[in-house]
């Protein structure tokens, strides 16, 4: 591909992705329905378009590099919600650290146990290990422990969607009512998508969820290599 063709392809892919996202977002904000989750709508519409037109998926992903590059600074930006909520974090330090730490570790432990039980392929199992944390953290973890970052990214989105749909209902059923407990659970199990849902419940729930999403990401990044040792290479 000549430089100019690559540039045009890049502009077209980024513009298309932005366009679909920009159409889905107001729909989601109005309906708050899972079916309108911008990332789900955008990935489905773009995926279907690529398959229908026969454009190579790899070509599209490569052309979208300018967009994907922003994942780096976006991850660094996760420090801001943590900094804003530092008073809440300090007040509930023991509760939050214990619950989020245990949650993040049990997420990985349960993936490893089930992956072994179901005899999943090593690369799939290793892509599943970080699936509870936010995508920009899950992708480099997957790469480091022998998984496939793109598979991890898709698993993260599905996990977040499941958590958003069933999480609040599940928590209510077992009697989890405190704002910080609901927030911690949604942020730890369903990262950014769960955090968005937690903000719908209230500010305390959402703020706690954003703390949980960041802490669970850091804990998972630190501990994932240990859990990956329990999987066949």
């Amino acid at each position: 591909m000549s430089a100019r063709v690559a540039w045009v392809a890049s502009a077209a892919a980024v513009a298309g992705t932005l366009g679909v996202y920009a159409l889905a977002r107001p729909l989601y904000l109005r309906t708050k329905s899972v079916l309108a989750l911008p990332v789900l709508v955008a990935a489905t519409v773009i995926g279907a378009t690529l398959l229908a037109t026969g454009v190579e998926v790899a070509t599209y992903v490569e052309a979208c590099r300018p967009l994907s590059l922003l994942l780096g600074p976006a991850t660094v930006a996760l420090a801001i919600p943590l900094h804003r909520e530092r008073a809440r974090l300090r007040r509930h330090a023991r509760t939050l650290l214990l619950a989020i730490g245990l949650g993040a570790l049990s997420a990985m432990a349960s993936v490893v146990a089930l992956a072994r039980l179901l005899a999943l392929s090593p690369s799939l199992a290793r892509s599943l290990v970080p699936k509870s944390v936010t995508t920009p953290i899950a992708m480099p973890i997957a790469a480091r422990i022998g998984g496939v970052p793109e598979i991890a990214a898709a698993l993260v989105v599905v996990t977040g969607t499941l958590g958003m749909v069933a999480g609040p209902w599940l928590l209510t059923r077992v009697g989890v009512r405190t704002a910080i407990a609901r927030g911690a659970a949604l942020g730890t199990a369903a990262h950014g998508i769960g955090t968005a849902r937690a903000f719908d419940e209230g500010r305390a729930e959402g703020a706690t969820a954003s703390v949980a999403m960041v802490l669970a990401g850091v804990i998972t990044a630190l501990a994932a290599p240990l859990f990956a040792r329990w999987l066949s290479p």
Partner: peptide, 9 residues
């Protein structure tokens, strides 16, 4: 979520 649409696709 916009930035990881390409990866998810």
């Amino acid at each position: 979520s916009l930035f990881f649409v390409p990866a998810a696709v």
